[in-house]
Design a protein around this nucleic acid. Structure first.
Lengths: 351, 351
DNA sequence: GCAATATTTGAAATCGGTTGCAAATCCATA
DNA sequence: TATGGATTTGCAACCGATTTCAAATATTGC
């Protein structure tokens, strides 16, 4: 049961070397495939490696060649399916290129995230992927900026968001397109009284969504009603509370864009509790297309980000930069709309 | 933007030493607090550490003192909220004791999981927490056993499940108690025709649940109907399909125990589609108490495992064992029942 | 003020790999 | 068979910490 005492020592390159009757350098060479080794010896060494199931110590390797082959992924909370999906996508992409990934979750605490930037550096990661800007944590505190700046001087930072004043590589979802897809989807279904639920306008990404939303309405000649914007957190409760407020209005919205799937679930729940039918009376759509969209009834129409592609782009950018290749500092990926059951043509139903 | 070229080199203990006019050993001593250092020097060194925000290279540290202060966590899929919750709990507990955590997800592929056992060892983790036995992946293939056995000789393995033939420390949820809580909850509500949906009986943990379930029914003098068991995967579809089959029967069940929350969501969906009301016509309960229980309508009555406690126990066990402390090889944690909206007293309703 | 003891300190070895350089071995050609 | 160039190999230094051991310095008691 390995009480961490007895035969703890692992096999090293020296053991292999001795048994093969060669020098450690030679073993290293076959390990890394970095130079020719006489076939006869090579086979002998390989056999031993096989026999003992030898794996070079990753710590030592990282130390000596100063290439740790590890990248760090920093995000708010892996329990959020949006992040989890992206994490797995990044990891798969990294793995495919021989890199490992270290995960750090700030859980929304700025201080912890600052700490984690240091930890990642300490772990000799070759690059940091910061997946952020999507949750309540508004990480723009000066202390965070300062630390990120400091780190960014040593290590490339790749972000799916945006870190003020900090030079980093950005791989972002085209938010304008996302807003457009949702808004025009609803407009095509005949909706004009469209409400926005959840998210805070002092979060840049949310604010941008709002602005685009207004622009699109204007383009379609639909009047903008500021009362149709319910600011809140990025969770279920925000949706639930938002509906309470919106449906108490005289001119009730006929469609709601929730800031994410969690929020949409809250929206739907409250609507149903109040006796509205979704989507017959009110259409509900949201961003993220996590599996939550399939768990509610009705299933939610949502914006999909193609997590695999996005994750791969993040990881590839990180690894390319780490390898000194020149990489565009800005990339965007296009979202798409997945229509499910929660959105439908507007009817004359109850107002 | 750190193109991984220019001033890549980080500050080392030597730099600090030189500037402080002392030897590296001395710096190391203040770093690890392992011996006295004259206050004057100590302050000087600490100031420099502060000034440069110096953090000792974790690779070098791990290499030299052969204590990596890292434990590995191996699970099927972090995108599953059950695992995610447990992971975060483990990580927090580990962090609190100065340990870091490396996450590996097998994504249900046995081969990948085998590979990851090697990777973790290669990373010099001090212990491996294997959170498993809960999903479709029935990891009992001989190759896996063999590898786990091999690893277990070098490294302590702590599991929330059970790995055949492999000696490991176990921290498990009392499944009997979980089954009992659910079953008696339903019986108290007047249900006798209780169905089991999802899960495969050739998965040991599922089989054990089934056996306990039967025993409890018998204790209450309720006849066992084998047709009320719908085997399937551990997901939404299993629940959805299960209901289709069960509700086609003559004597329909009045309550359903789903193998987990995903499955329960499918169960509820299908019931509603078929015109049943939950819980008025059919009660639905499940295991895991993930946040999914709050997203459905009605919210799901589910078994909670107290993830924080479980995670802490796993992490503490891992760290204690790694530190050579003697630790019980078996621990159990008691689950509890969280009653929500999906279960109610049986009524005479439609059969 | 000096010996004896206690505390600080630094030199050097170590952890387990990689790699530059020079020596050793190989092969082909003259 | 000797000669030259190309391959293969091993030695030794290095990556950045920790730690043992002995030397240097400080403190104490007399």
């Amino acid at each position: 049961m390995a009480k961490n005492s007895d035969n703890d020592k692992s096999i090293t390159i020296y053991d292999i070397a001795k048994e093969a009757g060669v020098s450690p350098s030679t073993v290293s060479r076959v390990l890394t495939n970095s130079a020719n080794v006489r076939p006869e010896k090579r086979d002998r060494i390989k056999a031993l490696i096989e026999k003992y199931n030898f794996r070079p110590n990753a710590l030592a390797k990282g130390l000596s060649d100063t290439r740790s082959r590890v990248i760090g992924v920093l995000m708010a909370d892996i329990r959020n399916p949006f992040y989890a999906a992206l994490y797995v996508a990044c990891e798969n992409a990294a793995l495919a290129r021989g890199y490992r990934v270290i995960l750090c979750c700030s859980l929304g605490e700025t201080e912890r995230e600052i700490e984690q930037l240091d930890i990642l550096k300490q772990q000799s990661v070759e690059a940091i992927i910061q997946i952020g800007g999507r949750v309540d944590a508004v990480i723009t505190e000066p202390a965070y900026i300062a630390k990120a700046k400091q780190i960014a001087e040593k290590l490339p930072i790749i972000t799916s968001g945006k870190i003020d004043e900090v030079p980093c590589y950005r791989v972002v979802i085209d938010a304008n397109e996302a807003v457009r897809l949702l808004t025009e989807h609803l407009i095509e279904l005949g909706h004009e009284r469209i409400a926005l639920v959840g998210g805070r306008l002092d979060v840049i990404s949310t604010y941008e969504k709002y602005m685009t939303f207004c622009k699109i309405l204007k383009n379609h000649g639909i009047p903008i009603n500021k009362r149709y914007v319910y600011e809140g957190r990025y969770d279920y409760d925000a949706g639930y509370e938002g509906v309470k407020e919106l449906m108490a209005m005289r001119e009730k919205p006929t469609a709601i864009i929730a800031i994410n799937d969690f929020c949409a679930a809250g929206v739907i729940r409250r609507l149903i509790e109040e006796g509205y039918r979704v989507p017959e009376d009110v259409s509900v759509v949201s961003y993220d297309n996590t599996y939550i969209t399939n768990l509610t009834f009705p299933k939610i129409t949502s914006i999909d980000y193609d997590y695999d592609t996005l994750g791969k782009m993040l990881a590839d950018t990180a690894i390319d930069v780490a390898n000194g290749e020149s990489v565009p500092t800005f990339r965007r990926v296009m979202p798409s709309l997945v229509v499910r059951e929660s959105s439908a043509r507007r009817n004359g139903g109850k107002t």
